[in-house]
């Protein structure tokens, strides 16, 4: 137990929590936006994967990490756009559409990787670029806080900023108001001329945008190359985080951090010979438990009303 505390109570561990939370947080914010518009985008995993590859490809051909980032984000948005086109225009079932996106991504990325590099495993032969990490002046010299908060990848900082941006977007802007109205009562939105399809398009594109940032981080920050299936379930964890966070910005951000911590812990716990495979299931177990608690309490609430005595 002591050795566990020794692992957790270090600035390195806190630093790594933020590091592994970044992709989850981005994708969870994306899932949040589309969910608030009433559409469950389960294609997050696939979108992140496509973006991760796009970042590597574009940065290696352009020679610029920033252009690569742009490419990654555009690719994520584009894939979300395809999903939106099919689900909103052709009325493909949104869940099956998400399944299709994930299928497309897991094979399609390997397909493309092989065509461009002749390798099906990783992009080692591509000279891709990495986005920088930033030391924050002043902060970096403060003990404890400095080593935890300074020196992170630029996208890690961006993910934290994104929490505030998404909060403002959903709660204070016309687009946010419309997204929430479409999710809560699409008929109401439609009746005042808000195009439900247009808003859901926007929400899906935004979810692709954020998943794209998460994907870019994977291959241009977390690692410095693309490897097959490198997202490794983070898209699902993000969906779980959004669900556990009860579709609020703050809840989603906090749950993402919690799941990030679980992820970091699974690395740390390997020191203690606690199997990482089991730790990796914690976010999913937590989500199922959270979902059940919520569902049970909702049902209880209904039942209680039924059993109230007759008032004559």
């Amino acid at each position: 137990m002591n050795s566990l505390l020794n692992v957790i109570l270090t600035t390195d561990f806190a630093f790594s929590v933020l590091r592994v939370t970044t992709p989850i947080l981005f994708a969870a914010l994306g899932a949040l936006i589309s969910n608030r518009a009433g559409i469950i985008n389960i294609g997050m995993e696939g979108i992140m994967l496509v973006s991760a590859l796009a970042g590597v490809i574009v940065s290696s051909y352009s020679g610029s990490a920033w252009v690569g980032l742009l490419g990654a984000v555009l690719a994520g948005t584009l894939i979300a756009g395809i999903l939106a086109f099919f689900t909103l225009q052709f009325k493909t079932h949104i869940i099956l559409g998400g399944v299709a996106i994930n299928m497309f991504a897991s094979g399609g990325t390997v397909f493309l990787l092989y065509l461009l590099s002749g390798d099906k495993g990783s992009s080692t032969s591509l000279p891709s670029k990495v986005l920088p990490s930033i030391d924050i002046p002043v902060l970096k010299n403060i003990p404890v806080l400095g080593p935890i908060l300074s020196g992170h990848h630029i996208l890690t900082y961006l993910s934290i900023v994104a929490v505030f941006v998404v909060y403002y977007l959903l709660n204070r802007t016309p687009l946010g108001l419309r997204i929430r109205s479409v999710g809560e009562n699409p008929h109401a939105a439609q009746s005042v001329g808000v195009s439900v399809v247009k808003i859901q398009y926007m929400a899906l594109l935004l979810s692709g945008f954020f998943a794209g940032l998460g994907g870019a981080y994977m291959s241009m920050g977390y690692l410095s190359l693309f490897t097959r299936d490198m997202v490794a379930g983070r898209g699902w964890i993000a969906i779980a985080a959004e669900s556990m966070g009860r579709s609020t910005t703050v809840g989603t951000a906090l749950t993402s951090l919690l799941f990030g911590a679980a992820d970091a812990l699974s690395n740390a716990l390997q020191v203690l010979k606690i199997p990482a495979e089991l730790i990796a299931t914690l976010p999913y177990v937590a989500t199922v438990i959270g979902l059940v608690i919520y569902a049970v309490s909702e049902t209880r609430k209904k039942n209680r009303k039924v059993k109230s005595p007759v008032v004559k």
Binding site: T173, P174, L177, R180, E184, A188, A189, V194
Partner: peptide, 25 residues
């Protein structure tokens, strides 16, 4: 009724034609 229950009356009134200040409502 075509109203969003969790919104205020004013929010329901302006939905789709929100008055702006900067980028916000």
């Amino acid at each position: 009724f075509m109203l969003v229950p969790s919104f205020t009356v004013a929010e329901n009134m302006v939905l789709g034609m929100e008055p702006r200040r900067g980028v916000g409502i």
